[in-house]
């Protein structure tokens, strides 16, 4: 048996293609058994592993432009801010896939990781998860629902990776084929704005796109080496990744 080559799964999101429709958010919630938010929840207490920010260029009509920025866990590679802070090893960087894994059954709910995350991509279960009668039938059997009082976040649909690996193993293969593992958001995106794949695989589309000139990452200066890239041909959108973006409009969240 040959040693398996490590992957570094990542994403490139084409911000010029994103229409802000929110299909990724819905697909993510369905795939990952996110419970429907209680009535008293708001945009800051609800759980949305994938969250689409709307950012305006700050100019008045007719020069107004908007960009939609889908934000999820950026899967930081280096000095991953949330891993070192967790007091009980409930966050791990999976060597094989490069995915930052949150292990809810070990989580104490101290939320220190949430204060550590610069992308605000971590979510706490403020309520007991409740599915309306009948809706529990739609739960994804491959993903364990989380309980109240623990933290969760995007894990690049880790359940799908496991399923793909199981399938490959059943067919006697060691490695999975790239098309066998796609997270729900990239699957659902109607404009194919989310390209997902192995950044270590030089042949992959995602690796090629990540190295393109108009690709950038958010908060790159923090040095955490996130594995989610954004792309845009519009210069002002590039500026939002830098710190010189003046007086941003109030963000709006879809979904």
């Amino acid at each position: 048996m040959t040693a398996q080559k490590n992957s570094r799964y990542g994403m490139v999101i084409d911000l010029d293609a994103c229409t802000g429709c929110g299909a990724c958010m819905v697909a993510c919630a369905v795939e990952n058994n996110i419970p429907p938010a209680p009535e008293s929840a708001n945009e800051r207490t609800g759980i949305t592993w994938m969250r689409v920010y709307k950012v305006l260029n700050g100019k008045s009509f007719p020069d107004t432009q908007a960009v939609f920025v889908p934000m999820m866990c950026q899967q930081c590679e280096h000095h991953t801010p949330c891993i070192s802070v967790c007091p009980q090893k409930a966050v791990e960087l999976d060597e094989e896939s490069g995915i930052v894994a949150q292990i809810p059954v070990r989580c104490l709910g101290c939320r220190y990781c949430m204060t550590a995350c610069p992308y605000h991509a971590r979510y706490f279960n403020w309520w007991d998860p409740v599915w309306p009668k009948g809706m529990e039938q739609t739960l994804n059997p491959d993903v364990a629902p989380r309980m109240r009082g623990v933290v969760e976040k995007c894990n690049f649909c880790h359940g799908r990776l496991q399923a793909a690996k199981a399938k490959a193993a059943a067919e006697g293969r060691i490695e999975i084929r790239p098309e066998e593992y796609q997270p729900a958001c990239s699957d659902a995106c109607p404009t194919n704005a989310i390209v997902f794949g192995d950044l270590n695989d030089e042949q992959s589309e995602v690796s090629r796109m990540a190295h393109q000139k108009d690709s950038f990452r958010l908060l790159e200066t923090l040095g955490s080496e996130p594995k989610v890239y954004f792309q845009s041909e519009r210069p002002w959108v590039h500026h939002i990744a830098e710190q010189d973006f003046a007086s941003p409009e109030k963000e709006t969240v879809h979904g």
Binding site: V85, P87, C107, C110, G149, V150
Partner: peptide, 26 residues
């Protein structure tokens, strides 16, 4: 009261991440 799962407080002792400041604090 502040932690979401107080009954899991012993996890910090049983599976300590010695690199976390919070572990040292606890």
């Amino acid at each position: 009261v502040d932690v979401g799962q107080p009954l899991r407080a012993w996890f910090t002792f049983w599976h300590p991440n010695v690199h976390s400041m919070l572990t040292e604090v606890t």
